[in-house]
Design a protein around this nucleic acid. Structure first.
Length: 659
DNA sequence: GCAAGGTC
């Protein structure tokens, strides 16, 4: 009897795929794990050519295995951390889920992997094979393991995937196993080394004690993602603190309109500003001397312009925007999105994809919202092809990212918070409303406007002014966070007209320092530098907060005018970055380069031009070297900490003295 | 008490 066991990365995918392949006629059984169900049905896999077969579709919950060291031999305090670069690793398995796979796989003739089609998913597929192999070794030996290739849950796509499987890609598995091994060895070795050496000096650190939870033993952790993240915050902080303002000068013109009235528009100097006061003064005096109160129009242009609707929503964009618009932390945002997903309100919240698969039925997703008390009228108007409004339904713009596993985040159900009695928390409501409005904006028409530029010649110098007239707001009517306003109308002069200059000013100003790091900027930097993934970026930020490497300075003001909260490094955070800088390891520890190089090597493993063994031994070799340097320079590392501590306390006492 | 990556 032929029996096919299908295994997905998470229960929600197993449920959906079973629903599609069975045509809604699958039966559900519980499993040995509370998060996972087994779905039985029959299906005719064309590649198998065996007619209708019995199928069980089940799932895991992410990785089944955790790479680790034996606690007995290599636990904390039981060995020199240096040994962790060579110590044997073990694979810890999730017992409950493995048990279910063993039960369900015991009598299977074929195993079909339905994990997400990304690198981690390929590795999870390999882990599933190891688990099933425990109860049914003939599956592997008879080469009966297949892997479905799918990128979303559109039924015809899933059916096509069921019929065109490939084999597992061992190279991708190797790449993930390499990353795991490097992160584990380097992370644990350096965490133990740093904790052992910083603990005693931290006992007299008042800032640390204030931030730390009572009874918490300090842990000074190192991680390949934690340190570059900290590096971004410290780097910004230093640039703000060390900023030296420079004075500059520029010239502004005010003019009279055609009818002789005073125009509100000020004309800017095309040279921008100069840092040399005398130079600006002599140009200014020359202009006054030559032309006094007359200028000539030397350029008039006017062109249509657009403000683009947002791209389909990715996890990183959701987190950035909820942080900017609602002051909701990345962690809280992702937690709320996860809950909304589990309740079936929104699609899977961890995705890098910013284009919708061509066959997605967006119109029916939109139509569900027609009766919504807040945005129902907007949707009704959008979907009405006969309306006179310029805002018509449009297929969303497409970005360049595709994780090959999940579509952009979008609403699945319409939840009317004003009408229904539901148990959404306030964070969930905020995130749900944002996801819906973002989706509506994606499917709307770009805003249209007209941009006008006028340039004047005054005494041989050029001055310009720009004007924007917003003609059609379109998506802006629902996406209130991207406002676009018309500014003052430019005077309606024509080319070569003479213009009366009503006022000339030579002004001075100062360059201003950069702002401290906001969470949304940090997310953007991490994303751009490949530090963490959509699912882990928020965790890394929380981690360096909980380690007291950075602290949050909450914004001031209230409501819409409230300024963003910013991240500041603690003395400890700054000492770690500057300590490694001092001993010559800056590039490797507090900059994103090492992690980026690792990512490149992983890609090469996937492409078959590098070997897992070579990559691991090369990078572990580098870390072993860094470890030697760090141990031999530990005094210097601690000295940097003490210097920074003394310096910050010095600042405090100085300030006290002034007061 | 330690990493980063999946997922609940």
């Amino acid at each position: 009897m032929v029996k096919i066991l299908c295994v997905a990365e998470k229960n929600s995918i197993a449920k959906n795929v079973a629903q599609i392949l069975s045509g809604g006629r699958s039966s559900m059984r519980p499993s040995t794990s509370p998060y996972i169900k087994n779905y039985d049905f029959q299906y005719d896999f064309q590649w198998l050519n065996m007619g209708r077969c019995n199928v069980t579709m089940t799932a895991v919950a992410g990785h089944l295995m955790n790479l680790a060291f034996s606690q007995n031999e290599y636990g904390w305090g039981k060995c020199d951390p240096n040994l962790l670069f060579d110590a044997p690793t073990i694979d810890e398995m999730d017992d409950k889920i493995v048990k279910n796979l063993q039960n369900e796989g015991r009598h299977a003739t074929h195993l079909m992997i339905w994990t997400d089609c990304d690198r981690e998913g390929e590795c999870i597929g390999w882990e599933i094979v190891q688990a099933v192999n425990r109860s049914n070794s003939s599956l592997v030996s008879s080469d009966s393991v297949y892997r479905a290739v799918f990128s979303h849950l559109e039924p015809s796509h899933i059916i096509a995937s069921a019929n065109r499987p490939r084999k597992l890609d061992q190279r991708q598995v190797d790449a993930v196993r390499a990353r795991q091994e490097i992160d584990l060895r380097a992370g644990l070795a350096f965490t133990r080394l740093l904790t052992g050496n910083y603990r005693s000096v931290l006992q007299s650190d008042l800032e640390y004690k204030q931030l730390a939870k009572k009874d918490d033993k300090p842990v000074i952790s190192y991680g390949t993602c934690q340190f570059p993240t900290l590096g971004f915050v410290v780097d910004r902080y230093e640039r703000v603190i060390n900023f030296i303002p420079e004075q500059f000068w520029h010239i502004l013109l005010s003019v009279k309109d055609l009818d002789g009235s005073e125009s509100k528009v000020k004309f800017q100097w095309e040279r921008g500003h100069l840092f040399d006061r005398l130079a600006v003064l002599s140009i200014y005096e020359h202009c006054i001397g030559t032309c006094e109160d007359r200028a000539k129009v030397i350029h008039v242009s006017s062109k249509d312009t657009k403000k683009f609707r947002p791209l389909p929503l990715t996890t990183v964009e959701l987190q950035k925007n909820c942080s900017r618009f609602f002051k909701l932390s990345a962690k809280k945002t992702l937690d709320a999105a996860e809950k909304l997903y589990q309740q079936g309100y929104i699609s899977y919240p961890r995705t890098e994809t910013d284009k919708f698969p061509a066959k997605t039925d967006l119109k029916s997703l939109l139509n569900k919202h027609q009766g919504h008390s807040e945005w129902g009228p907007y949707v009704t108007n959008l979907m009405n092809e006969n309306s006179t409004s310029t805002n018509k339904y449009q297929w969303p713009r497409s970005g360049n990212h595709d994780d090959q596993a999940h579509p952009p985040i979008h609403p699945i159900l319409c939840v009317d918070i004003a009408k229904t009695d539901n148990r959404m928390t306030s964070d969930e409501k905020t995130v749900y409303n944002y996801v819906v409005k973002h989706f509506l904006a994606c499917c709307s028409t770009d805003a249209r406007g007209r941009s006008t530029t006028l340039k004047l010649d005054w005494g041989g110098e050029t001055f310009y002014a720009n004007g924007i007239q917003v003609l059609e707001r379109n998506f802006l009517d629902i996406y209130q966070w991207a406002d676009w306003k018309s500014n003052d109308t430019l005077p309606a002069y024509q080319m070569s007209d003479d213009v009366v200059v009503s006022k000339t000013e030579m002004k001075s100003g100062q360059t201003s320092p950069p702002k401290h790091m906001t969470e949304s900027e940090l997310i953007m930097l991490m994303d751009a530098n490949g530090i963490g993934t959509d699912a882990t970026i928020a965790d890394h930020i929380e981690k360096i907060k909980s380690r007291n490497y950075i602290k949050v300075q909450t914004g001031s003001g209230s409501g819409a005018k409230k300024t963003a909260s910013v991240f500041l490094p603690t003395s400890l955070g700054r000492s770690l970055v500057h300590g490694f800088e001092k001993i010559g390891l800056e590039e490797s520890f507090s900059k994103p380069f090492l992690r980026r190089d690792l990512e490149k090597d992983l890609q090469l493993i996937c492409g078959g031009t590098k070997d897992k063994k070579d990559v691991v031994s090369l990078i572990i070799g580098m870390y072993r070297n860094y470890y030697q340097i760090t141990t031999s320079q530990m005094r210097n590392l601690i000295k940097v900490y003490n210097d920074i501590k003394a310096e910050s306390q010095g600042q405090v006492t100085q300030r006290n003295r002034v007061n």
